[in-house]
Nucleic acid binder design. Sequence first.
RNA 1: UGCCCGAUAGUAUAAUGGUAGUACGACGGUUUUUGGUGCCGUUUGUCUAGGUUCGAAUCCUGGUCGGGCAACCA
Length: 554
Amino acid sequence: MSEEKSLNFIEEIIENDLKSGKYDQIVTRFPPEPNGYLHIGHAKSICLNFGLAEHYNGRTNLRFDDTNPEKEETEYVESIKADIKWLGFDWDQELYTSDYFEQLYQFALTLIKKGLAYVDDSTSEQIAAGKGTPTTPGVASSYRSRSIEENLQLFEQMRAGKFKDGEKVLRAKIDLAAPNMLLRDPLLYRIKHATHHRTGDQWCIYPMYDFAHGQSDSIEHITHSICTLEFVPHRPVYDWLIEKLEIFPSHQYEFARLNMTYTVMSKRKLLQLVSDKIVEGWDDPRMPTISGMRRRGYTPKSIREFSRQIGVAKRENLIDLSLLEFFVREDLNKTATRRMVVFDPVKLVITNFAEDQVEYLEGEDNPEAEQKTYRKIPFTKELYIEREDFMVDPPKKFFRLAPGKMVRLKYGYIIRCDQFKQDENGNITEIACTYFPESKSGSGDTTLKAKGTLHWVSATKNTPVTLKLYDRLFTVEDMNSAEGEYKDHLNPQSLVINNAALAEPAILEDAPGLSYQFLRKGYFIQDKEKEADGKPVFNRTVGLKDSWAKETKK
RNA sequence: UGCCCGAUAGUAUAAUGGUAGUACGACGGUUUUUGGUGCCGUUUGUCUAGGUUCGAAUCCUGGUCGGGCAACCA
């Protein structure tokens, strides 16, 4: 980290706290609720929390915020841990808010004994009504004036399971006229006779977010508790509880959550996409989840770089998907193994090449690599090229194959198109070419020149592959302000399957998990699933930039 | 009509009272056995009205616009 970089507002706070001696070491935490899979928005938070601790020699706890047994599952715990590790971060301690249930209960007793909390028998409707509105103060329920002894007894009975769900709650006694609605006696505990993924049936009362998060931060001596903007109005509650409980003063800081074009980022909506089977699962490559992006071929580095570049601020934002794509291309360009795959094959015959001859050409695995490695590519009389790479009557700027024109076959020879065949509908069925042996790749011969270079595969020595071409899940840029239901804007083209593609044979020998660039096409990664007949499936991570496509649109 | 947060190119993000910069995008050029990559260049910005000051994106006041807050969710 030698480069001069300006600080974001949280880094400024930390540097000041370190300089002033307020803290010797910073402690952050990443506090996911295990009720869904992590998405790219969480990745921003993970990079922030873990990155800060890394940079300032602090530490970061992973704490599962599991105070709502009805929504939380162990499956989610495991996926969250795997995603954080995959992103390249290590937590100091693995913790659960449920580990603190006894401690939190004791905190609640402390509050009651101080006359700062009371058991309320009102229904949730009555409580909501009693809170008033933003412009009118709330009114106290008759239970607000219960004695400390009665509150203590009732709260113990709540824990002991004497009451049904919703019969009673514990509330803080703060200020029913506060302009901040959250200060109007917020709920601290509710009764839920539900089985918790870790504590089982040990508890039937569960703390609310407000009574769990800040206290957990305090127990762990978190110095900088970083969360998203929607918790700003909770901060006075956070501070009030810490003050009244006289515990370690953690502080909360808020930043704007990540929004991205053409996608949704709420766990509720993502869960719906999964349960309504609009996508295949949480790790569907179209999902903005970490696991989906991993399956799609995104790299941890590209996500970390993306998080760094988007910065941290307090203003609402909507980040261009193209920025994420830039970072994954940047990373993959340096690391992806090059292979040739013809997506839409059309036959090409080299008329002056021997019938049964197979010539093995050498192809660089990656022109950007410092240590060059090569693979063999079989070259034969009959080949396939991309249908779109041939035109009978091409426009001026078309650098590809056309009658009488010359192109280079990548890693091979320059060829000239002499003839072509068409069916009755005008579709090209075969192209006949002459090749020039002296133009062989690497020969250094420069007498012949070709403007374009095409990728190709042997017609006899290739392997069929399935290609899954993914695109944005939605058709609307800003899904937050899109009219109607978000499901109205699903992109019908978000997945296009190509069953006709043919790949060079080297692809069968490659190590699993390799990132590929299919030459002139895009970045791909092999999917975990194969076709029933064993045919490999490749997911498109992102296409290559295509200035020809842009040109043709003009 | 209460309280809170925010407002800098198309999108993000810097400038911490002293030359408005960076990245992505867009556009153009160049190199190239990937119409990829690399390299070079162009373009567009301080929400508004006052005030303080030699000097304001920055400080103050009013307004406008955007977001949030009245879950036994987090």
